[in-house]
Design a protein around this nucleic acid. Structure first.
Length: 777
DNA sequence: CATTAGAATAACACC
DNA sequence: TATTCTAATG
């Protein structure tokens, strides 16, 4: 039993220390900082300085001696946020706070706790964390083992289901019958089999990091009590995005002292698909009766127009607590809206606009690229921008795109490290077994599996045994022996304390992996070698291989430390919690944003989440926010056309400046060009027509089309084709991307029956067919 | 066993 | 369109 440190005398002595960090706070923030005891719910709108309040609160806890750094549990949503918070607390206190060991994401904290009590979950404390890729491969094995058709019931689907269950803290035996219909009712059984496989691999997936810890807390009074004593104060950021498992975790820990402070904004709840429950935030006062609720509503980030536009959009949501953000700023740009013919033009326009801003345009000072961000709904939108910016040489950085650690060569290399660290890691072993190619194929693997099964050991040991007892085909012996010897040698080196960076290099060389890529003459080979070098370099920052592997599993954000100024491209999700002076929000088209899938799957709920995403996007901007959409976009190499997002209708006209791009709606006057648009006569001259555009027949027509023909005009024809009628006539000769030419034999609504010349009679959706005379060439 | 051509399929967001 | 999977061939 430790006595409570920081109480009594120490606290009094320290209370006298200066607290300059309080001066910078408004009354609400200050209340949030100084109400230290008991439950506190901070409802903090976008840009209201909640991070400032949170960090000040931590500083206050430390300065007043209420808690030591290691007695505060602070949960953030992303690793980036955790880093930033650590740094800002350090700044407030004028020194780096050594050790806030319990400041991190739920997952990072989960690992930490689980490592201490792994045996209670049937694991060794050296367990590995599987990434999504491994998870899918493992699930495929499980599905195959049960003789289920993996085409109909895909591993991906099962992964989603299990993830969902884990988010709700359901172990296989706790899955309610009513939820168990997928996979012909066998999903819980598959889930159980999967958990068993994980255990035997000494591995966990992301969901387990929470689930196991909750289970341990629920079943081991003593351990829970220990942590309750330990974490004297609990802080939770982005509370609106916590799922049930996380909620239970927090409630278990806070139940006794109730010193829990949750910060959230129901309007920024954008992780419903990951099991987040906005209900958690709405229920807070029930869970913690007598909670102090503090609202932060003064926005320090955005100009009035931006704020008004964002507020108007979010106001369309039914289910919200309701908040009124205000600002005492007066001046500022309106939100800009612009439509484009296609995605490429959108990218081109944004590129030019950005360049104009760096030179100084509009009423704004020249801007640094660091101050600008393009926020997209889906990561595939990034490509058009990357292509464009590469050609014009505009430096950019992608956050959260295809990640470094997901590349083939990096995953291969890491698999080698993983097996070296843990021979039990069958998944990694499978990966390296014949990588690089060493003549050990499926047959060889089967023999290894047989040996491993017979002795009840891992594949790696199975291979060693098979070699020893001679059950491995003669043709495989040479290569297999080399592999086993290599692994043993590397393992021994690791044990002898050989520097892990050198060891990594050795592994890559001795395994033949580096040579493999050196010998490869394909154009991407040099890049891959380059990446491997980078990987080895990255190891330097860690103490050993294991530490590195853990880092990689949890921290997938590539926080590239770049000195050069770069523009940022990222998803809306990744942008939460960040702010930029200049923000571009491209791709506001129905179907893309709001995403069709989101609406199909969860209906109104999904739509409202999309709308919150729009709100998050707009509120990232401090000075200038530009929304854009494209009439046509390439999807899977097919041209698709779309209507402007319904969220665009929700932007109040008085806060929006509609720009007309060259070439659309018959526009094209120079005033619309970036660089040429700064005030002056042109502005006055075109204002009326711009407003008209926003309310123009063309606009209305596009709206009206929502009910009419949807999609596909494959033609690159001029703008006029937007107006061309799309109706088809019986007997008309048409062209289809896949089936070629054919004649229409029947029409039902938007479905056509077509007798194709090559493919025979097919039913197709009208939008995939074009009249044969406007085929693009 | 490896290579290859052709087919299938994919893409919503993240720790 | 770009990647991945499959079956057929070397």
């Amino acid at each position: 039993m430790t006595t409570a440190p920081g109480s009594g005398l120490a606290a009094q002595a320290q209370a006298a220390r200066p607290q300059p960090y309080l001066d910078a706070l408004n009354p609400e923030q200050r209340a949030a900082v100084e109400t230290l005891d008991g439950p506190v719910l901070m409802l903090a709108g976008a840009g209201t300085g909640k991070t400032r309040a949170l960090t000040a609160r931590i500083a206050h806890l430390l300065v007043t001696g209420r808690a030591r750094p290691n007695e505060i549990l602070a949960v953030t949503f992303t690793n980036k946020a955790a880093r930033e918070m650590k740094q800002r607390v350090g700044q407030l206190l004028g020194e780096t706070v050594e050790g806030m060991p319990w400041l991190g994401t739920f997952h990072a904290l989960g690992v930490k706790i689980l490592r201490r009590h792994a045996e209670l979950a049937g694991l060794k404390s050296s367990f590995t964390i599987l990434d999504t890729d491994d998870q899918i491969r493992l699930l495929r094995q499980v599905i195959r083992a049960e003789n289920i058709d993996e085409k109909r019931w895909t591993p991906r689907l099962l992964a989603g289901i299990i993830d969902n269950w884990k988010n709700r803290a359901w172990t296989p035996d706790k899955v309610p019958l009513a939820e168990a219909s997928a996979f012909n009712g066998r999903a819980p059984q598959l889930y159980a089999a999967y958990q068993a496989r994980l255990k035997s691999l000494n591995a966990v997936d992301f969901g387990d990091l929470l689930l196991h810890v909750v289970t341990i807390f629920q079943t081991h009074e003593d351990i829970l009590a220990q942590y309750r004593r330990w974490f004297r104060y609990i802080l939770v950021d982005e509370y609106q995005d916590t799922n049930v498992a996380q909620y239970l975790w927090l409630r278990l820990l806070a139940a006794e002292h109730r010193n829990i402070c949750c910060v959230g904004d129901d309007d920024q709840s954008i992780y419903g698909w990951r099991g987040a429950e906005v209900g958690n935030i709405l229920r807070f006062e029930n869970d913690f009766p007598g909670a102090t609720v503090i609202r932060l509503e003064q926005n320090y980030r955005s100009t009035p127009h931006i704020l008004a536009a964002a507020s108007a959009v979010i106001a369309a949501n039914e289910n919200r607590l309701g908040k009124t953000l205000w600002t005492d700023r007066v001046e500022g740009e309106k939100l800009r809206l612009i439509g484009h013919w296609d995605g490429e033009e959108e990218a081109r326009w944004i590129g030019e606009d950005i360049e104009a801003l760096t030179r100084g345009s509009r009423a704004l000072q020249p801007m640094s690229l660091e101050d600008m961000a393009i926020l997209v709904r889906a990561s595939h939108q990034m490509r058009a921008f990357e292509d464009r910016f590469l050609t014009i040489g505009l430096p950019y950085r992608v956050v959260g795109g295809p990640r470094f650690y997901e590349r083939l060569e990096i995953r291969d290399a890491m698999a080698y490290f993983r097996v070296t660290v843990s021979f039990d890691d069958d998944l990694a072993f499978e990966r390296i077994f014949n990588t690089p190619k060493r003549g050990l194929g499926e047959k060889a693997m089967q023999q290894v599996v047989a040996a491993a099964r017979a002795h009840g050991v891992s594949l790696c040991e199975g291979l060693a045994i098979a070699l020893k007892e001679g059950s491995l085909g003669a043709r495989y012996r040479k290569a297999a022996t080399r592999l086993v010897e290599g692994l043993l040698r590397w393992r021994a080196s690791a044990r002898d304390g050989v520097n892990h960076v050198d060891l990594a290099r050795t592994i890559l060389e001795e395994s033949g992996y580096t040579d493999y890529w050196t010998a490869d003459k394909s154009p991407e080979a040099p890049g891959r070698l380059e990446n491997l070098k980078e990987l080895v370099k990255a190891l330097e920052e860690f103490e050993n291989l294991q530490g590195f592997l853990e880092h990689v599993a949890l921290i997938m954000d590539n926080a590239e430390a770049g000195e050069d100024e770069k523009l940022t491209i990222m998803t809306l999700h990744a942008a939460k919690g960040l702010e930029y002076p200049v923000v571009y929000l491209p791709g506001w088209e129905d179907g893309l944003f709001p995403s069709q899938r989101s609406m199909d799957e969860t209906g109104l709920k999904g739509l409202e989440e999309e709308r919150r995403l729009a709100y998050v996007g707009i509120t990232r901007a401090a000075l200038l926010c530009t929304v854009s959409f494209a009439a046509n976009r390439r999807l899977y190499g097919q041209w698709q056309s779309a209507l402007p997002s319904r969220f665009i209708d929700e932007l109040p006209a008085e806060h929006v400046e509609v720009l007309t791009p060259p070439g659309l709606y018959g526009g094209g006057y120079g005033a619309a060009r970036p660089g040429g648009m700064s005030g002056g006569l042109a502005d006055v001259e075109t204002r009326a027509s711009r407003a008209d555009v926003y309310n123009s027949p063309g606009w209305r027509r596009m709206q009206a089309r929502a009910t009419g023909r949807a999609g596909g005009q494959a033609s690159r024809a001029p703008v006029v084709s937007l107006e061309a009628s799309a109706s088809f006539a019986l007997g008309e000769r048409v062209f289809h991307q896949k089936f070629g030419y054919g004649k229409i034999t029947a029409i039902e609504g938007d479905k056509l029956s077509v007798a194709f010349e090559k493919a025979g009679e097919k039913k197709v959706v009208a939008s995939y067919v074009s009249g044969s005379d406007d085929i693009p060439f």
